[in-house]
Structure formats: structure tokens, C-alpha cells
């Protein structure tokens, strides 16, 4: 894949193997034969695999560092507090996997069984999978280009022994590129309930989040709603509020009104959340009465309601 010609029309296009830029490409004959345009057989295999997974939720955000992994982890913790709910958390941030640390699973290894890779369990009903479990040292960098990352995501969805799961939460890296396209594509036949989009209040972040929403529309991915993270900061000394990331354009609230998508809630910036993540503990358990916990709980409840109302049905919402 290193030497893809600059004007590569894409293996699925009608021009595949026939364009001027295809001259001299080692894959020209393969592309021209139409083999590249056939759907990936993995999509069907993943559909089979996902029959035991009731709800699938993607956590997205255009911008990095807004709290996707923190939110994904706490969504998983929150849902798993009901011991009858089976929760799986999949981290597809291949180059920056932070879920193992946040879930307190650093240094854990994945085990292979007859039915595939076994997730690493935090509780009996909360399993986690991340590329972080496949690295031999915390310094290991995953220096991979797109196709290799896509292969890993395919394996995570197809080859992990998820078992009977009520909620599969997929934590993604920032952006609108390979990982996101692959996740949506591989799960296309298996039905995704929708995406939760995380943002911070300032315009620089909202600007990237609008791109992410645009992405969801392009790939026909339903949007469950938006979570505004790091909303206000409450000084631990004087208890007064300040805005570290000021919502100069009205924050997520105005954006959601403009774009007619639900705002699920706002989570205040509490330095203890970051500390709980660094220690690998659930903030919801560490500080059960804090305003941030209450905000998380109300958001989690709304997500559950959304999934309850949208029972999975057989459909290809990505058939184009």
C-alpha cells in the first residue's frame, strides 16, 4: 500500500484499474477485474458474530482530547453497574489506546481461546478489548498506516469472543478517517444503534465536531446525541465557577439547536475525573454525589432510553 498512485480512483470505483493513474500500478489487473469492488466477506462474518450483541454505540468526536475515552469508559462503568447488563468496551484508537489505563488494565494480555480472542474483564459483566493489550511495553508505538489499522479493527470485530452482550461501546480516535470508515463499514450489516458525539464548549472544538456530524450524515450513521464535556470548572477552594474553555459561540447547546440534534447533557470539568482515570478507577464510584457523576448518570440514562426505543432491526443502512 505504500506506493498507491496519487490519483488512485479507489478500488471500488468504476474507474478502478482503468484510470490514467492506474498505469503501472501493481494492482491494476486486480482492480480492473472488479474483484476489489466486491463487498468484503468480513462484513457478513461480522454480522454473524454481532448477532449476540444487542446494542452498538460509537463514541465519536472530530477533535482530540475532548474526553471520548473518559466518556466511553464511564458509559461502560455506568451501564455495568447493573449486574444483569453485559457490557463490552472496544477501543479502536489504534495509535493512542488509552482505555487500558483508564480501566485500570495496564499490562494485561489478551488470551486466545478456541472461539477467538478473549476480552480482558474488569468485572464479570464488563469486558474490554484494545490494541494496548497486544503491545509488549508502554513505550511501543503503533506506527501503522490505514490498511493495517483497518485489518486490526476487522479482527477486533470478527475474531474477539464477545459472547452475549447488551451494549458494545466503541471508542474511536479523533477525526474522520480510516478507523471511522472501517468501523462503520464493517458494522454496516450488523446495525449500529448510533453515535454519541463528544465536544468541549469552545468553537475550535465545535468546528471539528460539525465535521464529525457531517461525517455521520454522509455515512448515514444515526446520532444519539451530543455530550458537552469540560463545561464549567468549579474552583475547589472558593467553589465559584469559571470557564476554562469558554463557549464563545454558545457551546454545544446552540450547535445542537442549529443542527437539530439532541444535547444529551453537560459534564462539568472536575479535576478528580482525570485523577480517577489516571488511577484506573470509576469516577462514578469514587465520587457518587458529585455534579459530574449526576451529569454522567443522566446522560447514560438517555442513551439507554434511545437504545430501548430503537430496537435493532435487520437493515443495511449503508448499502450504497
Amino acid at each position: 500500500m505504500e506506493e498507491v498512485p496519487q490519483g488512485c480512483p479507489g478500488t471500488g470505483s468504476a474507474q478502478a484499474g482503468r484510470g490514467a493513474s492506474c498505469q503501472g500500478c501493481p494492482n491494476q489487473r486486480l482492480c480492473a477485474s472488479g474483484a476489489g469492488a466486491a463487498p468484503d466477506p468480513a462484513i457478513e462474518e461480522i454480522k454473524e458474530k454481532m448477532k449476540t450483541v444487542k446494542h452498538k454505540i460509537l463514541v465519536l468526536s472530530g477533535k482530540g482530547g475532548v474526553g471520548k475515552s473518559t466518556f466511553s469508559a464511564h458509559l461502560a462503568h455506568g451501564l455495568a453497574e447493573d449486574e444483569n447488563t453485559q457490557v463490552a468496551l472496544l477501543d479502536i484508537d489504534i495509535c493512542g489506546p488509552s482505555i487500558p489505563k483508564i480501566m485500570g488494565l495496564e499490562g494485561e494480555q489478551v488470551h486466545q481461546s478456541g472461539s477467538g480472542w478473549s476480552p480482558v474483564f474488569v468485572e464479570d459483566n464488563l469486558g474490554v478489548m484494545s490494541v494496548g493489550f497486544l503491545l509488549s511495553s508502554p513505550d511501543d508505538a503503533v506506527i501503522w498506516r490505514g490498511p493495517k489499522k483497518n485489518g486490526m479493527i476487522k479482527q477486533f470485530l470478527r475474531d474477539v469472543d464477545w459472547g452475549e452482550v447488551d451494549y458494545l461501546i466503541v471508542d474511536t480516535p479523533p477525526g474522520t478517517s480510516d478507523e471511522h470508515l472501517s468501523a462503520v463499514q464493517y458494522l454496516s450489516a450488523a446495525h449500529i444503534d448510533g453515535a454519541v458525539i463528544i465536544t468541549t464548549p469552545q468553537e475550535v472544538s465545535l468546528q471539528d465536531v460539525r465535521k464529525e456530524i457531517n461525517f455521520c450524515h454522509k455515512v448515514k450513521l444515526p446520532i444519539i446525541g451530543v455530550v458537552e464535556n469540560m463545561s464549567v470548572f468549579i474552583c475547589p477552594k472558593c467553589k465559584k465557577e469559571s470557564q476554562i474553555f469558554p463557549p464563545t459561540t454558545g457551546g454545544a447547546e446552540v450547535m445542537c439547536q442549529d443542527l437539530k440534534i439532541p444535547l444529551l447533557g453537560k459534564v462539568p470539568l472536575d479535576p478528580h475525573i482525570g485523577k480517577s482515570c489516571d488511577k484506573g478507577q470509576s469516577f462514578l464510584m469514587d465520587a457518587p454525589d458529585s455534579p459530574a457523576t449526576l451529569a454522567y448518570r443522566s446522560i447514560i440514562q438517555r442513551i439507554q432510553e434511545f437504545c430501548g426505543h430503537h430496537q435493532p432491526k435487520e437493515e443495511h443502512f449503508l448499502s450504497s
Binding site: 500500500m1 496519487q6 474522520t176 471511522h180 470508515l181 468546528q207 455515512v219
Partner: peptide
């Protein structure tokens, strides 16, 4: 438009950076 998403996979991103 500023809201336009750049939904590109790797090879296309590489070409623009070059």
C-alpha cells in the same frame, strides 16, 4: 464550507501532504 468533513483514507491524505 468550514463544516465540510474530510473523509479520506490514508493514501489520499498522503498525496495531499506530499
Amino acid at each position: 464550507s468550514p463544516d465540510e468533513a474530510v473523509v479520506w483514507r490514508g493514501p489520499k491524505k498522503n498525496a495531499l501532504i506530499k
